[in-house]
Design a protein around this nucleic acid. Sequence first.
DNA 1: TATGCACCCTCTAGTCGCTAGAGGGTCAAG
DNA 2: CTTGACCCTCTAGCGACTAGAGGGTGCATA
Lengths: 139, 139
Amino acid sequence: MSDKLTIGKLASATGTKVETIRYYEQIGLLAAPARSAGNYRTYEGEHLRRLSFIRRARDLGFSIDQVRELMGLADRREQSCMAVDVIANQHRDAITRKIADLTALASELDALIDSCSRNTVAECRIIEALGPSAEARSH
Amino acid sequence: MSDKLTIGKLASATGTKVETIRYYEQIGLLAAPARSAGNYRTYEGEHLRRLSFIRRARDLGFSIDQVRELMGLADRREQSCMAVDVIANQHRDAITRKIADLTALASELDALIDSCSRNTVAECRIIEALGPSAEARSH
DNA sequence: TATGCACCCTCTAGTCGCTAGAGGGTCAAG
DNA sequence: CTTGACCCTCTAGCGACTAGAGGGTGCATA
């Protein structure tokens, strides 16, 4: 029933690497826990909750700074949900842009790949396509 | 008619920052050019062609190491195009995976955002959703 | 009791692809 | 001859870790 955890236990409970937990402590994202007689970190249930929050937000692609902001909001519970909503929406917009960029990239690459007809490199259309553009050559 | 360029000219001709060009030289991606009497880098047409190639490949999302590999292949022109095709396809696959991940992320975020009904943070579903998972709580 | 082994500690440096800044030198125009 | 745009090197910083050196701790087993 004890909720004391070594760093290794906390790591496997949250799917985080041990080094990453120490890193989060170092940058002040996760509070430094008490130490045992042998100088081992001893984590409590609250640390587990915080780290779970951090990991989940990180998995959703929030930056460390955004996570910090979200945790600050979560702690001041009287305040409006709107600030949280704003952060989530900003992040959603960034993801939308990224997907669009990657999709455009993918079709460019597809065109390139289609044009490769297993010739020697001298005739390789991919290499050609990556070369200097026609305008650059015309000067 | 001279094709000698200062680093600034090369930068604006290729849409690269001056610092980035020096960085490419430092990591051995772009050959070091001759120097003028005043120790300025003096680039030739070949440098322009190489840097254009690099920029284009980087814009398509190839890593520096992939660019290095592609340039090596482009130089051995008698050899089969297939190695180039392989690199391009690996990269295409990585992009496909990234798009899938981001799309899944986007719908998770959408669900989160929908559930936020502008209440106080105490009832905020986004913060809840980011908290420790049900399994973690049940232990 | 000794020994082995998994785990923990700190500290430092490396990853990737640049970017920024300090502190200077060069060059061409006015 | 001065101004200002450009160039030089060197070093450190970004984000978010990751890896390694060189050591200490804790527990089980022979």
